[in-house]
Design a protein around this nucleic acid. Structure first.
Lengths: 328, 328
DNA sequence: GATGCTCATGGAAACGATTCCATCATGGTT
DNA sequence: AACCATGATGGAATCGTTTCCATGAGCATC
């Protein structure tokens, strides 16, 4: 019962078919061979249930098939959906995906890059933390990298959601409801979204109050603390925009805890549409991002070689539910 | 700039240190060597930034390090947290994790097992779909498998939550509130939980109505359709237990759509505690499962070899919020 | 001084695939 | 009949590592 049988190798198939190993390899990888030989080899391979070893092939070809995927946090619905998109595309190419979570920590990210290089992974999709400087050696080593969700280096192709447009529409919507004191609860590293936020405010003639832009670290705890701190220190604000679903969750929780009613006391718009946004009380108005598509397109980009660095921007959409009201 | 430098190999290090490759290998993997040689080799390796190729090693050693992980759906918060647990444990061992989603489809699962075998993965954690028969060849091939969340084969060690106890406490709680017509909205394959459900009912002297146990497929669509169908066909029910968070989400949505008020019209308990359960209106009473721990323990089990098949059962907990009330 | 033991060391085989290259048969052309 | 082009085929090299085994040096013992 615990007798482990040796793996069937190409040599076994060659022997069974009465041909050389080179011929087997050619037949199986679509090279030229006479019809009868082809048939004999195929029959032998099927009979022995032969599966070529990816190890042998990869070593010879000097490249590991497969994709490395680095995300900050797999329990965050956004990255889970992004991952799902990557997996979905990779599956259609038959490529395995190796995943790592960085926790938004550049040091851990560098460590994971090292592991990927050891595995001879030559294709990586990453949501980079920090400024992406630790990618320089990997790029020099010929690694094929695509960034997802965040664009931090010009020399690496990327797939991002159009957060500039999303933030713009959301802020205009809030301003249209009469709000002037609008806060932005951001995660560190969301400079793009913050910039879009202040730009839109100034273009609408609303003065920018730097104290209304606050930053949290990636964890739920930090998000909650920052949200609560914002609500307490600035009771005059009337609307909040959060830079992600974890931050939105924290804001709803903090508001409830502090007796701040949504949308009566403050209006809330959350970046990223998640299934529970509709179940929330009140249902949350959100900026939807095509998380799955971001992952899928990134995988396409990294699998289809030979493109030069380019950035793909995917559309965002404001979905109005019930978490925003007129200025009180 | 686009000059790709060749990978530094053990041969380069050997040359730089003026020793043979065998010595380098020995030094780097902790074998015996004279102190001065050791130092020379270490210095050369550091200077050249040498990283041993996992490919070469794995081929020689006939085993791929790393863990394969097969889950039904990575966007399901439960499996995302389970995955996080696996990754967390694997990281402390420095092992990469290759992930695949089965969509709860045995065929796709079999396909993914094939991919893992091609990669010479010898350690796999899986949430099996179906009865796990497709694992037989893999087990014969010496694959080291651990099942998580579901136990379907006696010859494979597993880590599961104590759903029997969880369902028991939940049903007792509902019965204590006076409910007699309690429905169970399950996913196909949750026979364990269904059995616990009916067992508990009979032990409480509540007659079991087979029509009140309904099954949905794994998708959100199927979950919603089944939930809505249940509410419409059985307006006499007063409480519902759902077998997972996707099903709970669907039930809340369907109830809202059909004007069924929770907990006024029907009480609801959901299996699995998720962050949004607290944000929901009303906040949901749930059976919490240690999803992360399930993954972590499974990874421990698969990484620490040499244990004989055994099942680890982790505790569940009823968390009372506001989705249950007395029988109307 | 010869023998035996320990220890460091390096050459070479092995892992399983792909691929270069030489060989050989076949068939068509001169 | 001699020659060349074409195509199928298999042997052998190769990828980077680990590990077996032989070699040789150093040292102690008889």
């Amino acid at each position: 019962m615990s007798i482990v049988q040796r793996r069937t190798t190409i040599k076994d198939v060659a022997e069974a078919a009465g041909v050389g190993v080179a011929t087997v390899s050619r037949v199986l990888s679509g090279g030229s061979a006479s019809p009868e030989t082809r048939e004999r080899v195929l029959a032998a391979a099927a009979r022995l249930d032969y599966r070529p070893s990816a190890l042998g092939r990869n070593l010879r070809q000097q490249r590991t098939g497969g994709i490395g995927l680095l995300v900050p946090d797999i329990t965050d619905s956004f990255y889970a959906r992004l991952t799902d998109g990557v997996l979905s595309c990779a599956r259609s190419y038959g490529e395995p995906v190796t995943i790592g979570v960085t926790g938004d920590d550049p040091e851990r990210e560098a460590e994971l890059i090292g592991t990927l290089i050891e595995q001879s992974m030559d294709r990586v999709i990453a949501v980079p933390s920090g400024d992406g400087e630790m990618w320089a050696p990997a790029l020099r080593a010929g690694l094929n990298v695509v960034f997802a969700d965040r664009k931090v280096r010009a020399d690496v192709p990327g797939v991002v959601a159009d957060d500039r447009a999303g933030v713009g529409i959301a802020v205009e919507y809030l301003a249209g409801l009469g709000h002037r004191k609008i806060a932005f609860l951001a995660r560190y590293g969301q400079s793009q979204r913050v910039a879009a936020f202040t730009d839109t405010l100034t273009s609408l003639g609303v003065p920018v109050d730097p104290e209304l832009v606050v930053h949290a670290r990636a964890s739920r705890d930090s998000a909650y603390a920052t949200a609560a701190g914002l609500l307490q220190s600035r009771p005059d604000l009337t609307a909040v925009l959060t830079g992600g679903n974890i931050l939105g969750e924290a804001m709803v929780l903090a508001a409830r805890e502090l007796g701040v009613r949504i949308p009566r006391d403050v209006s809330l718009i959350m970046f990223d549409d998640v299934p529970w946004a509709e179940l929330c009380s009140p249902p949350l108005t959100v900026i939807a991002q095509p998380a799955q598509d971001v992952g899928y397109r990134a995988a396409e980009l990294v699998l289809r070689q030979g493109r030069r660095p380019r950035t793909v921007t995917l559309p965002t959409e404001l979905i109005v539910r019930a978490s925003c009201g007129p200025r009180r």
